[in-house]
């Protein structure tokens, strides 16, 4: 079971790092990160303190766009080329297939985040840092990325072509990233406002980014991940009925 997932992860990573797309993605990621951190008008030197909170918010937004582009091909492309049929007639379950893709994308994002560690070391040299907050910030980034990946996998399973998967996943992602927060602000009070507030992803990310670890946030992230991965599984199997 775990072994099969491991084989699938390795295959995904092999083919990902065999193409230029992933390196272009990384390059774009670091260019924007570098610009936002050191060169933009709101760069680290204007903050007046050594912290990575604004930097993490920028990373979060870049990851948001890059992950949808990364995940759009995952299932839709396999279904179109027929390799989904090839895999699912081998001893591979739909769950293992999804888990393999999910973990491999998480590893790709993890590598990108790992490579931003020099920023952290540089900033530690510039002033005193709240190391716990940085750690939780990274943890928060991994969790939000996992949410975007599961949304991307769901969209790719539901759509027929990668490009429609991209738009479905971007749309769903924007609901969690922007729309629910806006709605929560528009509705003055009451349970509906609370509900939208709870559904808004930045709310939960910001609290981790500030260095606050709350089980409600963890619960939120895990439920979003599980929900969309379950929907992905449902849609993959739907085409087989």
């Amino acid at each position: 079971m775990v072994r099969t997932i491991g084989i699938l992860i390795r295959k995904e990573l092999d083919s990902a790092f065999n193409s230029w797309a992933i390196y272009t993605g990384y390059l774009l990621f670091f260019c924007i990160c570098g610009f936002a951190c050191w060169l933009s008008p709101g760069n680290v030197f204007t903050l007046g303190q050594a912290g990575m909170t604004p930097f993490f918010t920028v990373i979060n937004w870049i990851a948001f766009f890059i992950i949808h582009a990364l995940a759009m091909k995952s299932v839709a492309d396999e279904r179109r080329s027929g390799t989904l049929e090839l895999l699912l007639t081998k001893p591979v379950t739909t769950f293992q297939l999804i888990a393999g893709k999910f973990c491999s994308y998480l590893i790709i994002i993890g590598i990108a985040l790992f490579l931003t560690l020099p920023y952290y070391f540089t900033m530690t040299g510039l002033g005193s840092m709240d190391h716990g907050a940085v750690l939780l910030g990274y943890f928060g980034l991994i969790l939000t990325s996992a949410c975007y990946i599961s949304i991307g996998l769901f969209a790719s399973s539901a759509a027929k072509t990668p490009i429609s998967a991209f738009f479905i996943s971007l749309g769903t992602g924007l609901c969690f990233q922007v729309l629910f927060g806006l709605l929560a602000n528009q509705i003055p009070f009451g349970p509906v406002a609370n509900l939208f507030g709870f559904l808004s992803l930045p709310e939960h990310f910001e609290s981790l980014n500030r260095g606050v670890l709350d089980t409600r946030d963890l619960f939120y992230f895990l439920s979003v991940i599980v929900l969309f991965l379950a929907l992905a599984k449902l849609y993959i199997n739907k085409y087989r009925h």
Partner: peptide
């Protein structure tokens, strides 16, 4: 069953990049 079956699908899907 999947473990004991060898199946060549109609359009012969393969991972082209491998």
């Amino acid at each position: 069953i999947r473990q004991h079956i060898g199946y060549l699908p109609e359009h012969n899907p393969l991972y082209d990049e491998m």
